[in-house]
């Protein structure tokens, strides 16, 4: 615990979630007229039921939570070593407290305590996120945030075609142990990637308390999962977009990818989406293959930002070696 006069900065304690949600909804509601109130159920999903536990630092004025810096840990395969990367989410500082303690303010002190508690070479070596530009500027100036990659997004404009999922593609209700087998077949090409297994991905998609995701799979004749894609409809960059959140297909099995891509495009048509959209690292063979299938790279203001505590995990190295997708962040 750190004391700054009448302010206290400390890690989460049971019961803080009520004050956190009050502050979160107050701040994000004021900043965004389209803000949908975060519920206690969503908070518990994100921070209590998450397989890797919570990382939360709160700032209090007397007993009121006036700020938070929080992260969700993603169990990450770092060149064969198992580490946690922390996805920074839901950070806020109630407006009237933002100017307290000028340069750096109370928020920066809260973040620095978070880093001290949860991050470091022997703790979480990478904190990451897709920040809004105002937050990035602050983080860059005071907290060591850097840009790993600026992103174009793959977009498929509406097109005529089938509206039924093609034969050979099935809807899955949950993942089982085969997802990890599939991940292992894909991950050989990646130096860094969050593990894709049933525990992580059922939490991320099947158990999500607000959003309904469509989990698609292709199996071979022996019933083994050869590829998967996760889709949902969302009002995101455009209203009613079809968002391809997760794509896990070995590049050496293009026929599996073809079936899944056609399934996603059929879902988009059947739901009358404004466009389909996804994020795939540009060095992946799938980035090129989607373009061969009429997906185009649209500019975006999104970029992957990170703070590294690992001397080898420098931003340009991560750019070329880190596999992540929309499922690794909280945008959709």
């Amino acid at each position: 615990m750190s004391n700054f006069g009448e302010y206290t900065i400390r890690p989460y304690e049971p019961g803080d979630e009520h004050g956190i949600l009050e502050g979160f909804n107050l701040v994000f509601g004021a900043d965004n007229p389209r803000h949908v109130e975060r519920t206690l159920e969503e908070w518990r999903w994100a921070f209590e039921r998450h397989p890797r536990g919570r990382r939360i630092m709160v700032a209090l004025h007397n007993d009121r939570i006036v700020g938070q810096y929080a992260g969700i840990a993603y169990r990450t395969n770092l060149m064969g070593e198992e580490r946690d990367f922390v996805h920074m989410v839901d950070s806020f500082m109630v407006h009237e407290y933002r100017a307290r303690y000028k340069r750096p303010g109370l928020f920066v002190h809260t973040v620095l305590r978070f880093f001290e508690e949860f991050c470091g070479f022997d703790k979480a070596p990478i904190g990451y996120g897709v920040p809004v530009e105002k937050h990035f500027r602050l983080g860059h100036q005071f907290l060591g945030y850097e840009i790993v990659r600026t992103h174009g997004l793959l977009v498929r404009e509406p097109s005529p075609g089938p509206t039924e999922i093609p034969e050979g593609v099935e809807r899955l209700s949950r993942y089982d142990e085969q997802l990890r087998w599939l991940y292992d077949r894909c991950a050989g090409d990646w130096a860094v990637s969050a593990f894709r297994d049933a525990e992580a991905m059922n939490w991320r998609f099947a158990d999500h308390p607000r959003f309904e995701y469509v989990i698609l799979g292709v199996r071979d004749d022996a019933g083994i999962l050869r590829g998967t894609a996760v889709y949902r409809t969302a009002d995101w960059i455009l209203p009613r977009m079809g968002v391809l959140c997760e794509w896990l297909v070995p590049p050496g099995e293009p026929e599996v990818g073809e079936k899944l891509r056609l399934a996603v495009e059929a879902l988009g048509r059947s739901e009358g989406t404004s466009a389909l959209i996804t994020l795939i690292p540009d060095w992946s063979p799938w980035f090129a293959r989607f373009q061969e299938s009429q997906w185009r790279v649209w500019p975006s203001h999104y970029f992957m930002g990170c703070r590294s505590w690992h001397p080898r995990l420098e931003q340009m190295w991560l750019k070329d070696h880190w596999w992540y997708q929309l499922s690794d962040v909280d945008l959709v």
Binding site: T150, G152, D282, F287, Q291, E292, R296, V297, P299
Partner: peptide
């Protein structure tokens, strides 16, 4: 990537790499 011609050039056959 933010250039106005990026999308038209893709529609004309150029690919982003």
């Amino acid at each position: 990537g933010t250039a106005a011609d990026c999308l038209p050039l893709q529609r004309l056959g150029m690919r982003v790499e």
